[in-house]
Design a protein around this nucleic acid. Structure first.
Lengths: 352, 352
DNA sequence: TATAATCTCGTGCACGTGCACGTATACGCG
DNA sequence: CGCGTATACGTGCACGTGCACGAGATTATA
């Protein structure tokens, strides 16, 4: 330690109280008179007391909790990867007496989100990791965290506010750009007259959809480089497989030989059966995220390109970063951490 | 801590020795019979004992040392920025009982490098940060670190070996690419028939010059995109100001209206007086690193573009990363950490 | 004023390790 | 056999904090 090693005893002595009282003030757990508290705070100030992290860490009996607020998921889904990363990070920090706990909610039910928030807060976490799926509810929630002084880290996407501790995710807007660039590269401009954008029905009503800015990036690129091109949306219902098939069938018959198809979320596998049954020469399909089913489509040639990332690193790094801060007060070098966007084709998809 | 909290006492008991002996084995500081040591190691193995970091950290009396091996520098030089970053990182980890110490050498004298290495080792560091300026000497040195089990982090550039703990620096090859691309953008191909590359005399004989791969990146780009273009080198002696002036004068008279000039190290300010005295319309000068003198040239219009980075972050992050590993056994998320390459012109150089 | 209830605060142990210190044993030598 | 020395090992304290326990002080109630 530095030479001027000021301990809790020094503070207690100067304030004319015992170290127990100083400790109570430090962790404001009450049972201290206003007068004593003032004296203690004054002494801390005057001496420039800094608690010894190591001693504190050694003496703490119950582990620090890092809480993750995640949507429920089925095997193979995008959020499973996020969950995997959380578990990975949890293992890494387990030896440091940090416990990672997950709180799940239904991503289509704001009420379940709010009740998960309440449950999470009850666990008295020292830090929180969350993707901001419901915008206004998330804003309320992080405001509350802010009040408690609990740092939180966004993953997947982030909101436009300035109190988050860090962010780990894909650069959403740029990924839309990339998607558009890949869709249209080495193609004559007049050839790209219409693009199909397949979207999820329920997402229409979501308060916050992370793919919004990705779509914006895509649109902006197209507007700049292919101003004549029409963008035709088709909404599908993910839980109605036959409905999807029929909808696609109808859509593509109406739109003739439309050969450009993109999808901004991870669910392109919903199109698999239709695309398989209706091959179109020269069709170009670009989508996101390396779910197993999507990778299979890539291998089968029903998908031209998959824009992907190491999803699990988002949550893993978020957890580790948070642990470092909670334990050692170390802030990350960069607040916004963008994952690399990997471009996968059927020829480079192995061993990813 | 986890439930299975195995302490040094448990190990001692199982091995039939005292905790003192176990401690001696753990930190192999000798004074243990081979027989006892074997028993202790067996017990550790069987119990899966993991020392409690916090207790260890609390009990350790003398601080961990992170040693930085840097070239001496004059105020305003590139290495001063690196040094600043080291100091910054040192402040950040000081409260964690980690001490950052610098060992300096003359970057043009391999013997002074070697003696600095010896001095450094004598300080028994827990980790080392270094730019690999002398290739073969550095290789010998890191081999020795390896033997002692001391992790080391490269900054600035790195060697082609695989035992380093991490790397923080600019992507040298790509920065050469970028330089070439910026030099030639929006210029007709037939216009770029010759480029002057100003180099430092003494660097010719250096065993390892970090700018080698930058130059390679530049050359490769030019060979691909401007195969007809001649690349004309001029070597100057940094300590002979008048000689530089004369050499430049002679060189540019001989090479007519050569308008493309690049320099791969941070010393473009050495050209300032000449460039100022001999303005050439349409001349394009691109160089590296935001030293104060270089920034002034940018403002004065004697420099077209400066490719720069936040140099001080290299050493700062290296120190912090190493501290995290030494104290908490946390490895960085990525081993090779490339700084962002910033493109500075006279119009965006403010507040950098 | 006596007694109970509440609030405030001091005491002391536990956390697990590092290391200084001192002791026991073995060995060599005269 | 006595003594010195080197090696091997055990003991005990220090590190600074968290928190349970209970004592003392203050206030409320009868």
């Amino acid at each position: 330690m530095e030479d001027g090693k000021i301990t809790i005893f020094d503070v207690a002595e100067r304030a004319g109280v015992s170290k127990g009282t100083v400790d109570r003030v430090l962790h404001n757990r009450g049972e201290v008179s206003a007068k004593s508290a003032a004296k203690v705070r004054k002494a801390i100030e005057e001496l420039g007391y800094q608690p010894n992290l190591y001693a504190s860490l050694l003496a703490t009996r119950n582990a620090h909790v890092i809480a993750c607020l995640l949507p429920e998921f089925a095997p193979g889904e995008y959020w499973e990867r996020i969950n995997d990363g959380m578990v990975l990070g949890g293992k890494q920090v387990a030896s440091l007496n940090v416990l990672v706990r997950a709180f799940y909610y239904d991503q289509y039910d704001a009420r379940s989100f709010r009740s998960a928030c309440a449950e999470l807060l009850a666990s008295k976490p020292s830090g929180v990791v969350l993707p901001p799926l419901f915008m206004s509810d998330t804003l309320n929630f992080v405001q509350e965290l802010q009040n408690y002084g609990i740092p939180y880290v966004y993953i997947d996407s982030k909101l436009e506010e300035d109190n988050y501790f860090a962010y780990y995710g894909m650069p959403m807007y740029r990924s839309g750009h990339l998607c558009a660039a890949l869709l249209t590269e080495r193609v004559a401009a007049e050839d790209v007259d219409e693009v199909a954008v397949i979207r999820i029905n329920r997402d229409k009503n979501r308060q916050s959809d992370p793919t919004v800015s990705r779509r914006a990036g895509f649109m902006d690129y197209m507007a700049t480089n292919f101003p004549e091109c029409r963008i035709s949306p088709l909404f599908i219902n993910p839980s109605d497989e036959d409905g999807i098939y029929a909808a696609l069938d109808e859509f593509f018959s109406e739109h003739g030989d439309l050969r450009y198809v993109v999808m901004f979320n991870s669910r392109v596998h919903l199109l698999n059966r239709y695309l398989e049954d209706h091959p179109v020469p020269g069709r170009r399909v670009i989508a996101f995220d390396n779910l197993d089913k999507n990778m299979q489509m890539l291998r089968d040639g029903h998908l031209s390109i998959l824009i992907s990332q190491h999803t699990e690193h988002q949550s893993r790094d978020a957890v580790v970063t948070l642990a470092n801060y909670i334990l050692m007060r170390q802030k990350p070098a960069t607040r916004d951490n963008f994952m690399h966007m990997d471009i996968l084709t059927r020829y480079n998809q192995e061993n990813y």
